[in-house]
Design a protein around this nucleic acid. Structure first.
Lengths: 131, 131
DNA sequence: CCGTATCCATCTCGATACTG
DNA sequence: CAGTATCGAGATGGATACGG
């Protein structure tokens, strides 16, 4: 093999970069919350609306459509009255979810360092240098 | 232990969610590109400006400051003339980079499925239903 | 119940110009 | 070389109201 799996540079630089694309998919304020909520089993629209807390109807719909389009969620309509719609993670999404866990792990392990970095940076940049 | 490491739900729902935070850090259009460019060794400002291709001076600066504040990059000024500034990944950032690789892997493995999902969704939603 | 449509405030980002 | 300052276009997201 001529290229190691760490040679990702060219992919990041070009527009089809898979990392950036996947991050753009789930980076929004709500996408992950939705994914997580749906990871445990099918959820209804109104359930999500209550669970996510703070999300507007519009944003919920937009994110659901987006995730559905990406193939991360399936949408199932039950033609009952009143209507019932369930959203469920696809296999792909559950795999992604597992991968996301390693990010959680990283973030957890380094939360201290990050907080420290913030403090250091802020004190170094916001306190006016003494005259 | 009372909670498995997969019980991330409550974290996603609350504002201090580590996943969302870490994604917000690197999800921008440029952050990953910068991180990748710096992963191979210290880089100068103008080097990044040329490498990243398409980034404006302003955005480069903003992202560099942000990443520096997060503790992902270090900034070293050499008081020469002309000035020289080098940016380098921290240990933390290199670790994050490795983690990101698993996302690349996921994206690569499923790029076909995603493209298919797009196609399916689009044909189902953009072609007007025949009357 | 499950959305879509509309309006508006806010934020983001690129272009451009100027400085130590 | 390595930034900062300012401005305006466009994207983003919340509130609200209405439709299937």
């Amino acid at each position: 093999m001529s290229r190691s799996h760490t040679d990702v540079t060219d992919q990041v630089e070009n527009p089809a970069c898979p990392v950036s694309e996947v991050l753009d998919r789930v980076a929004g304020k709500w996408a992950i919350g939705i994914l997580v909520a749906a990871a445990k089993g099918p959820v209804r629209f109104s359930e999500l609306e209550r669970t996510i807390d703070g999300i507007s109807r519009r944003m919920l719909t937009l994110n659901l459509r987006k995730l559905e389009r990406e193939g991360l969620l399936t949408r199932t309509v039950y033609p009952t009255v009143p209507p019932k719609v369930e959203y469920a993670c696809t296999e792909m999404a559950l795999e992604l979810y597992e991968t996301l866990l390693s990010l959680v792990d990283w973030a957890t392990r380094h939360s201290g360092d990050i907080a420290r970095a913030h403090a250091v940076y802020d004190t170094a940049h916001t306190v006016a240098p003494a005259p």
